[in-house]
C-alpha cells in the first residue's frame, strides 16, 4: 500500500471519529432538551405557541455540538476554506445567485405543492379558504414576501441546524461516503434527529396509519429531499448562510395558493395521493437542481467536489 493511501486511510478514520462524536453530541443534547422541555410528552397541537417556540430552540444544538466537537478535536474555527465552519459570504463568481435562490426556492416548492394537489384533486379548490386564516385576500399576496424577509432576518434557529448539518456533517460524510451516499445517509440521520418532535405530532400530526413510525420514515424522506437542495446551495455558495436562509423561509411556509387549497374538501384515493403533494414538489425541485448542478459540475470545480476528488 502506498504512503498516500495510508495517509488517506488515517485521514478518513479521524474524519469518521469526528463525525461520530458530532452525531453523538447532536443527538444526545437535542433529545435531552426535548425530554427536559416536554417531560409529559404533550402533543404539538395541544401546546401553546410560545411553548412550541421554546421546544424549537432545540434547533440550536447542532451548532453547539459543531463548536464543541471542533474544540475537543482541535480542528480550529476557520471561517472559510476547506474544513472550515463555512461562515464566510462571497458574492463573487455569480455566487449571489444561490443566495437569491435560497429565498425563492421555498416559495416555488410550496406553490408547486399546491399546484400538484389541485391537479390531482381539483375538488381541493376553495376560493374562500383564506378566510379561515382570518386574513384579507390582499394579505395573501404579501405573505410569501413577508416569509422571505422575516425568514432571512430571523434565521438564527435555522442557522442553528444548518451550521451543524451542512457546515460540519455533510462535508465529512461526502468525504467518507461520496456525494450520492452522503446525501441519502445525511438525510436519514437528519430525519431521525427530528424523531422526538415527529412522535409528538410535529409536521404530520398524530392521526395517520402507523403513527409514529411511518411519520419518522416520512420525515427521513422529507429531510433527504430537502437535504439535497440545502447541500447543493451550501456547496455552490461555499457558505452555510444560503442553506440557513432557505431553511428559515421553508419553516415560514411561503405561498399564495395555500389560501385556495382546502384539503377537507375531498376524500378518497385521489385526495390521499394529493396529500403527498409536498413530497412530489420536493422531488421535482431536487431532481431539477441535481440536473442543473451536474451540468455545471462538469465545467466548474466546487468546494465539496474538490474535497471529494482530493480524497479519491
Amino acid at each position: 500500500m502506498s504512503e498516500a493511501n495510508i495517509n488517506l486511510k488515517i485521514g478518513l478514520k479521524s474524519e469518521m471519529k469526528r463525525l461520530a462524536l458530532y452525531l453523538w453530541f447532536s443527538f444526545a443534547i437535542t433529545w435531552a432538551w426535548f425530554l427536559i422541555a416536554n417531560p409529559k410528552g404533550t402533543l404539538w397541537t395541544e401546546m401553546p405557541d410560545a411553548m412550541q417556540s421554546f421546544l424549537a430552540l432545540g434547533m440550536l444544538f447542532p451548532t453547539i455540538s459543531h463548536i464543541l466537537v471542533r474544540y475537543l478535536t482541535k480542528e480550529g474555527f476557520a471561517m472559510t476554506g476547506e474544513g472550515s465552519m463555512m461562515l464566510g459570504i462571497s458574492f463573487r463568481d455569480r455566487k449571489w445567485i444561490w443566495f437569491v435562490l435560497a429565498g425563492l426556492l421555498p416559495w416555488l416548492v410550496y406553490e408547486l405543492e399546491d399546484g400538484i394537489r389541485l391537479l390531482i384533486c381539483p375538488d381541493y379548490f376553495d376560493p374562500e379558504y383564506y378566510r379561515t386564516f382570518d386574513i384579507e385576500e390582499k394579505m395573501l399576496y404579501l405573505l410569501p414576501v413577508n416569509a422571505i424577509v422575516c425568514g432571512a432576518i430571523g434565521s438564527f434557529a435555522a442557522f442553528g441546524e444548518e451550521c451543524g448539518w451542512r457546515g460540519y456533517m455533510m462535508p465529512k460524510m461526502i468525504r467518507i461516503f461520496g456525494r450520492t451516499k452522503a446525501m441519502i445517509v445525511g438525510g436519514i440521520v437528519w430525519g431521525l434527529w427530528h424523531a422526538p418532535l415527529t412522535c409528538i405530532g410535529h409536521n404530520f400530526g398524530t392521526d395517520y396509519w402507523g403513527y409514529p413510525y411511518v411519520g419518522i420514515l416520512k420525515m427521513c424522506l422529507l429531510c433527504t429531499l430537502l437535504g439535497i437542495l440545502l447541500t447543493i446551495l451550501t456547496e455552490k455558495s461555499g457558505s452555510v448562510w444560503p442553506a440557513a436562509i432557505m431553511h428559515a423561509v421553508f419553516n415560514m411556509h411561503p405561498g399564495i395558493l395555500v389560501g385556495y387549497v382546502n384539503s377537507d374538501n375531498a376524500e378518497g384515493i385521489r385526495a390521499s395521493i394529493a396529500s403527498y403533494g409536498f413530497f412530489f414538489a420536493l422531488m421535482i425541485t431536487a431532481a431539477a437542481m441535481l440536473v442543473v448542478c451536474r451540468k455545471e459540475n462538469t465545467a466548474k470545480k466546487d468546494m465539496y467536489g474538490e474535497m471529494q476528488r482530493k480524497s479519491a
Partner: peptide, 17 residues
C-alpha cells in the same frame, strides 16, 4: 443580527413560561 437573535431567544424563553 447577533443581538436581534439573542433578544428573540430571550423572548421565546420568557414567554414560554
Amino acid at each position: 443580527y447577533v443581538w436581534f437573535s439573542v433578544y428573540m431567544i430571550w423572548h421565546i424563553v420568557f414567554s414560554a413560561f
